[in-house]
Design a protein around this nucleic acid. Structure first.
Lengths: 180, 180
DNA sequence: CGGAGGCTTGCAACTCGTTGCATAGGTATG
DNA sequence: CATACCTATGCAACGAGTTGCAAGCCTCCG
């Protein structure tokens, strides 16, 4: 279980309400750790009960109140303790890879459907890659030189996203060429 | 839910018992879709109830009986229908990426621990990459030329594994260099 | 013979995460 | 004003997956 810790990291970068976290998870961190708002609310409630975070109700104009969470010293300790924990392999699951291996059993219709899925995913990855490259240009125009530790780490995670997308794209391209 | 379909693909390549499937999932397909034997047993039972597979008890010498499952026509239909289904993005989760972003909040001990995790993972990826390359040399010494459709697809999935590991390794190497 | 350990199947309890819905106030549109 | 939609939080039910354990049967070894 690590959503707790992902939330701790996000909240230490910037305190936020549940929905704001949910939106943030749809962007930067979310590319490596997704979660729905229901799950986030559930986990935030547990973290508050455990004393890892405290909530402060913030009144807004023209909008419902929101509960902004911040990390407590106990939460900070939990985060440090987790960092020292060995990191298990994140299980990898590629439905597309399974379909590739199943395409031989699907006749011509199955084969065509899998090809179409691969094309679709290739387009998605290309789009996301463009997005990451745009973020790089916007936020780190000079590369990693002269960044603070926090910024450097954010940059490096973004680099991971780029390398990942490039790898996926290369794979799917190779698949399409082999089946053309 | 796609473990069902991964099992259908595996069983169409070769009928097998629950434990044999579990072992096979630790190898080829398992690199893209892992599952424990308990989960496999549960899903196989459901698939049998749904009429997707039939079990035949095979008596073994010096070993307990095993139930070998084979795919029924209904199972074949389910597989083809699934192939025609749009393929959702497989959610990506990298605990390591979260730790990278959290390292700035862990002091020097946290930073060192994250570096150690990254080194460990880099070593793991290197090992797996070697394994994949060995498999390639052994099973596809001439590359994709002259392979049957089934073999070609298996080759391409293996290629995906290689490209993925190369990408991960490049990422972690970049991280280590940036923090050296 | 007795014990250790492997193979095979499976149950039970639990956690994690998703899906669908509910509530309650606010804004915008016709 | 009625309708529809947005923000924000949350509940309930379900499904997927993990962990721990158990049972039965076999072989191997001392």
């Amino acid at each position: 279980m690590a959503l707790e810790h992902a939330l701790l990291v996000a909240l230490r970068e910037q305190p936020a309400s549940g929905l704001e976290l949910s939106r943030r998870f749809g962007k930067s961190i979310g590319h490596f750790w997704s979660a729905t708002h229901q799950q986030i609310y559930k986990v935030l409630a547990r973290m508050e009960a455990d004393g890892w975070v405290v909530a402060e109700t913030v009144v807004q104009q023209g909008r419902p109140d929101k509960k902004v969470y911040d990390v407590t010293p106990a939460g900070r300790e939990a985060l440090v303790a987790w960092l020292a924990t060995p990191t298990p392999e994140s299980p990898l699951r590629s439905e597309l890879a399974v379909k590739m291996r199943g395409a031989s059993f699907g006749g011509s219709a199955g084969r065509a459907a899998v090809l179409e899925s691969v094309r679709q995913h290739a387009a998605d990855h290309e789009l996301r890659l463009d997005h990451y490259r745009h973020l790089t240009k916007r936020d780190y125009p000079d590369g990693p030189a002269g960044l603070s530790p926090l910024e450097l780490d954010q940059y490096l995670v973004l680099r991971g996203g780029i390398l990942l997308e490039e790898g996926q794209l290369a794979w799917l391209t190779e698949y399409l060429e082999a089946h053309s």
